[in-house]
Design a protein around this nucleic acid. Structure first.
Length: 463
RNA sequence: UCCUCAGUAGCUCAAUGGCAGAGCGACCGGCUGUUAACCGGUAGGUUGCAGGUUCGAGUCCUGCCUGGGGAGCCA
């Protein structure tokens, strides 16, 4: 028997026309009548489902099939019939419908509208809904697109460590990694003695693979990381998670402009990739999740991203005819309301903001000639805010050491990082792209918890 | 962490301090082409938890828990 996926049917329906096939999947809806009925069957291989027609005079178990509930798994054997005049392009005339796994009446995903909040509580079952079926197939596609983009350009993919002893990145609160007994840890002078811990020192989950990526960039020239990242921040927003994935390219012999060019090229590549590879899903998002999404994304591909300096941004904001809760002021970080105003009102497309005051950015960012700003860049996208943060890195050892001192980072903690400047150091740059933020931007899904299979956030680690 | 809104049937929501309800879903029945089918009927409740005020609390007060939205932090 020819076992096929629903995707195969949609890809080449003609080839299967009138042929006997077997499809395995889960019932979305079951509508029975007196002598025949219809199953909507989805197997996850395609956004769309396939309609199965079953008839009393064909199926010996008709009465049982008519009672199969939503969520039940079945194996359907029958003949594919093209139905160009009907609402669906084809259907399966069943010769046999076998129950593989029953689903009682209390199956939570019923054929009715559910809120995202409710579906989060049944995260193990929500992939069987239209929305999450689309989201997670696109998530898979987008991961692949990221690799495609960099591999086509000769970048080397680097697996940065998940566990690290770097405590100096300043990228946020960390999760401690330890095997010590939490109730009775080894003490020396009344403080926990991490020399007795697994690694013989304090260790934590990574907050960024950047420092390691820099080491590899200064060997392979163009590299990227793509892996999980952990932040123990007590953030309670729709765009923060404790565990998320980040893409961090790092390019050598390159400056901030090269960096922005790469970021812009990548964002456009990812959009194009999804529009081509996931047309059904993107059409669904554009219709039901964020109206007009596809058209907006297409416009972005053709647009030149705006680029302004932080100082220019402050000027625009100060002259703006807008009622900000906090007025823009040079030296202070941009508020969310400022970022939104810039990306949504002023430019209505992604905008790079560059050259921030050194005090509000990380120690490794390259000091500009004005001695007041650093070669940093944030990409602000309408609707989701900051999706990329990056910079040209400080390659001058003496200045880097001064900057570390400003941030109270002892050089011996990052001797290996300083070594990179000592031995063949060269100008280089890189950025971090929040994978989920990109996914939110590209799908129109507005809560990060709805683009992560099993999200981890403050006070929530279920499943 | 702060501000704010909410928590009542499986889900989404009503209910002036005075009998706890509807729609959807489920279940049962009907229907010869349905497609988030349609028509008729049935069942379904510790009103988030713990106290308090009151003759009487879903409703008012206090504390806690959970969730949404916003802010900060950031990707």
């Amino acid at each position: 028997m020819n076992k096929v996926s629903v995707r195969q049917l949609y890809m080449s329906a003609e080839a299967f026309s009138n042929k006997p096939i077997t499809v395995n999947g889960w019932i979305r809806t079951n509508r029975d009548q007196k002598s025949f009925g219809f199953l909507t069957l989805n197997d996850g291989s395609h956004f769309n489902s396939v309609q199965v027609v079953y008839e009393k005079e064909v199926l010996a178990n008709y009465d049982q099939v008519a009672k199969f509930g939503a969520g039940a798994a079945v194996k359907v054997t029958g003949r594919l019939v093209l139905t160009p005049e009907a609402r669906q392009p084809f259907e399966i005339k069943a010769r046999e419908v076998m129950l593989e796994g029953a689903s009682p009446a209390d199956f939570p995903i019923q054929p009715k509208r559910h809120t995202r909040e409710f579906l989060r509580e049944v995260a193990h079952l929500r992939p069987r809904t239209n929305l999450f079926s689309a989201v997670f197939r696109v998530r898979s596609q987008l991961s692949f697109a990221v690799h495609h983009f960099f591999q086509e350009r000769g970048f080397v993919y680097l697996h940065a460590p998940i566990i690290t002893a770097n405590d100096a990145e300043g990228a946020g609160e960390i999760f401690r990694v330890t095997t010590l007994d939490a109730i009775n840890p080894p003490l020396t002078d009344n403080t926990v003695d991490y020399r007795e811990d697994f690694f013989g020192k304090k260790t934590n989950l990574t907050v960024s693979g950047q420092l390691e990526a820099e080491a590899f960039a200064l060997a392979f020239k163009d590299v990227y990381t793509f892996g999980p990242t952990f932040r123990a921040e007590n953030s309670n927003t729709a765009r923060h998670a404790a565990e998320f994935w980040m893409i961090e390219p790092e390019i050598a012999f390159a400056d901030l402009n090269d960096n922005m060019n790469l970021a812009e090229e990548m964002v456009k590549y990812l959009i194009n990739y999804l529009l081509e590879q996931s047309p059904e899903e993107m059409a669904f998002f554009s219709h039901y999740v964020d109206r007009g999404l596809s058209e907006r994304l297409k416009k972005i591909v053709d647009a030149k991203f705006a680029r302004i300096s932080y100082s220019e941004a402050i000027e625009i904001l100060q002259k703006a005819n807008a009622d900000f809760e906090y007025p823009a002021e040079w030296g202070r970080d941009l508020q969310t309301e400022h970022e939104r105003y810039l990306s949504e009102n002023v430019f209505d497309k992604p905008v790079f903001v560059t050259d921030y005051p050194k005090e509000i950015k990380a120690f490794y960012m390259r000091l500009n000639d004005d001695q007041k700003t650093v070669a940093a860049m944030d990409l602000l996208a309408p609707g989701v805010g900051e999706i990329i943060g990056g910079s040209q890195r400080e390659e001058r050892a003496d200045i880097l050491i001064e900057r570390m001192a400003d941030f109270k980072i002892r050089p011996e903690e990052l001797q290996w990082y300083l070594d990179l400047r000592k031995y063949g150091g060269v100008k280089h740059a890189g950025f971090g792209l929040g994978f989920e933020r990109a996914l939110m931007y590209l799908t129109g899904v507005s809560n990060i918890r709805d683009v992560i299979p099993f999200p981890r956030t403050v006070n929530s680690c279920d499943f």
